[in-house]
């Protein structure tokens, strides 16, 4: 999981999806998750996933890291499906639900800087929890860098490669050092916060939309996904023969998004 890459893409992206309101993106992700949760039809679930991918293409998000990160839950979902699903199709649905929800959530993170995501969530959480969210995300970067340095240093000292056990012990010792470093860092961080007037609440204003049309398109896509999922669940007897329609339609949307993205890239260069 390369959090740094996710953050860079979210901050440096210049697409309409990046410019849309963080609240809208979170709401649309919630609609997509609801659609994935409600649906019982693999093809409808695939359609929701394709819609998320189409939005990612329109946002010019690099596909390899996006799909890799969103595909990660598939490993665990596949294990669960293998252990509990009665047949292959039901297992495929379990995996598809996991990947679809992940595609929606990861898209929000790839197109929205994390302070904006957490600022929106912070409004409904107790102060302590909201602040802890901000500090955690920041700490992931600090600790990631520090851990890399410590592991390299520990391996060099223990002669990594030739002595796997010594190397493992050195790595664990590096982790212990990291905990000590983390503790000292936490103490210093609180002092800095207190000096700057921290009084129990980190306040981050939520950015407004800079692309209302993108907001509208995202909301329309999210609602369409949920409506399709509910319709195919409630009236499945009547709609089952037409299950191919949602993925066919979203494939067309995906093709349009690819064409639009390519045109925008050419225009930019």
């Amino acid at each position: 999981m390369n959090v740094r890459l996710v953050d860079t893409i979210a901050v440096s992206g210049r697409s309409p999806v990046h410019a849309a309101s963080p609240r809208t993106k979170l709401a649309v992700a919630a609609l997509a998750i609801a659609a994935a949760a409600v649906t019982t039809n693999v093809l409808v679930c695939a359609a929701v996933a394709l819609t998320a991918i189409a939005a990612a293409v329109a946002a010019r998000v690099p596909m390899r890291p996006y799909l890799a990160l969103a595909g990660y839950p598939a490993i665990f979902a596949a294990l669960f499906a293998w252990a509990s699903a009665p047949d292959l199709l039901a297992g495929a649905l379990v995996v598809a639900k996991a990947v679809t929800a992940a595609l929606a959530v990861v898209l929000v993170l790839f197109t929205t800087p994390y302070p904006q995501v957490f600022a929106t969530i912070q409004r409904v959480l107790p102060g302590l929890v909201g602040d802890a969210l901000f500090m955690t995300y920041r700490a992931i970067f600090i600790l990631g860098d520090k851990l890399d340095d410590l592991v390299v240093a520990a391996r060099l000292r223990s002669g990594a490669g030739r002595h796997p056990l010594r190397s493992a012990l050195a790595t664990v010792r590096a982790l212990g050092n990291l905990v000590l470093y983390a503790f000292d860092l936490a103490e210093r961080e609180y002092d800095v916060l207190a000096l700057r007037g921290y009084s129990g609440r980190l306040s981050v204003p939520v950015r407004r939309s800079a692309a209302p049309l993108a907001d509208a398109a995202l909301v329309a896509g999210g609602i369409a996904c949920l409506v399709a999922a509910v319709a195919w669940r409630v009236a499945w007897r009547e709609l089952l023969p037409y299950s191919w329609l949602p993925p066919a339609f979203t494939l067309a949307v995906l093709a349009a998004a690819i064409a639009w993205s390519a045109a925008a890239k050419e225009g930019a260069s």
């Binding site: 959480l125 107790p126 102060g127 302590l128 929890v129 602040d131 802890a132 901000f134 500090m135 955690t136 995300y137 920041r138 700490a139 992931i140 600090i142 600790l143 990631g144 851990l147 990291l178 905990v179 983390a182 503790f183 860092l185 936490a186 103490e187 961080e189 609180y190 916060l193 129990g200």
Partner: peptide, 30 residues
């Protein structure tokens, strides 16, 4: 549980450990 924890963490000494929550959580996430 979060509301109870929030209430139990209102003492100064616990609040002081808030950055530690962030850092330990980051460690667990990694």
């Amino acid at each position: 549980a979060l509301l109870v924890a929030d209430r139990a963490s209102r003492r100064y000494e616990t609040r002081r450990r808030l950055p530690l929550v962030g850092i330990v959580s980051a460690l667990v996430i990694v």
